[in-house]
Design a protein around this nucleic acid. Structure first.
Lengths: 234, 234
DNA sequence: TCAGCCTTGTACCGATCGGTCAACAATTGA
DNA sequence: TCAATTGTTGACCGATCGGTACAAGGCTGA
């Protein structure tokens, strides 16, 4: 939190970025709290002094990784928002952009999706807001699609969460050099989702069964004597 | 790892389960590595002696939380597999079962989806396998749907991952007492997905654009001097 | 009543945590 | 060439980590 505005040389920025990227890999493997600063030193081949000279603190390092992901993702969203496509086209395009980031920065995205609760105070709030901003971009497309008549009457927030889950989940398995490529995968996902919410008539709808315990009232697991304690999580 | 087979009283088992549930809540808030045994003691209102008397070790506690989730989820999958429904019906039913578990055990599921890399050795392997077993159940339904002619020619592993992502992602926001209920949500998700992969003709397909940097070759972030180091992660 | 087991709190262990610091090496610019 | 700046090391800090040892309290059946 100290000395935020000191300007550094381009060389310093470059070295810092390299350390951030290497550290993202370590965090992705071992978790944020599960990684010690000593391990970061070893991975980056530097002493503690040099490490802290570049990162400031462990949490600022985590923030930098989050920034990398969120910046890239938001640039893609802007590109889509400024495009001329129809809502179905924009949705497909946004999917490609998102999967592309996940594909190019698998470690950063892993950390982004797993360790955001480790952010504290203002940092937690900042990224909670930026995540929400992105979610709104997705919702906007669904709303536009309903106005244009392309999409049927689904609930945009619900559809946005479904869409996000489908795409974000690829962070678990989508890797450079893997079996499937981004353009192909994005096309298939878009195909499924756009058909799924298309206003065009389809015979695909299914009557819902009422399986198992599914409609039983939720039974929150018993807690003995819990006290309140907060992190940054939502 | 010591003394796995000692049999304890029913009272002991009950108390143990209560501690597991309370601890799941703490882990969900603060993360596995981010939670100290002292915090677990405070949350459970016990001393360290009593805590370790019931849990054995911090990792065994994590295993117990994983077991709770995986057991419940697999019971649901069995119920669906033994049902008489068509593939589209089975897919909808499986979704309801899965969302139901997420809804009833939000803390456990959060831990399950976030902290599995903290498992080590044999424990990591066990749950890697159990996760894969579940994934196969999903793939089986897609394959059955293609044989029956209900589903079009999608790639079952790809579809399974898309379906899992869409449903699992609800762990971030689906809560008891929330705005949407499980049966309703599951119905909407099933509606989207089944339409999306239905063999029934639809005009919903979209020509894919080639947006932004999307087809640029992946640029793995530069690493300086990284050494190998393993956790349990996939 | 009391032996014996179940359950518990607490002092304590060595190891490791994130982070600081003074000293020094390397580089830079004039 | 040399002072100033930039970059780096590794010892060191108090705090805290997961886990253990052990004595003592509580409960149970005879």
């Amino acid at each position: 939190m100290t000395e935020v505005n000191v300007r550094r040389s381009a060389k310093w920025e470059l070295r810092r970025q390299a350390i951030i990227d290497t550290s993202a890999h370590v965090f992705a493997q071992r978790g944020f709290h599960g990684t010690s600063t000593a391990e970061l030193c070893e991975a980056n081949q530097v002493g503690k002094g040099a490490l802290y000279y570049y990162i400031g603190s462990k949490e600022q390092l985590l923030v930098a990784i989050h920034d990398r992901v969120m910046d890239e993702v938001m640039v893609g969203a802007d590109r889509v928002a400024n495009s001329e496509g129809t809502p179905p086209e924009q949705l497909a395009q946004l999917g490609t952009e998102l999967l592309d980031v996940i594909h190019r920065y698998p470690d950063h995205v892993w950390v982004f999706l797993h360790e955001f609760p480790a952010l504290t105070g203002e940092n937690a709030e900042t990224f909670r807001r930026r995540r929400r901003d992105y979610e709104i971009r997705v919702e906007d497309i669904f709303e536009a699609g309903q106005r244009s008549g392309d999409f049927r009457d689904i609930d945009p927030p619900m559809a946005a969460k479904a869409w996000l889950g489908m795409h974000n989940y690829t962070y678990l398995w989508l890797r450079p050099g893997g079996r499937v490529g981004v353009p192909d995968l994005a096309a298939q996902y878009a195909d499924i989702f756009v058909r799924g919410i298309s206003a065009a008539p389809s015979t695909g709808a299914v009557a819902m069964p009422s399986p198992g315990t599914a409609s039983a009232p939720p039974v929150p697991p018993a807690r003995t004597g819990a006290k309140k304690r907060r992190q940054g999580a939502a």
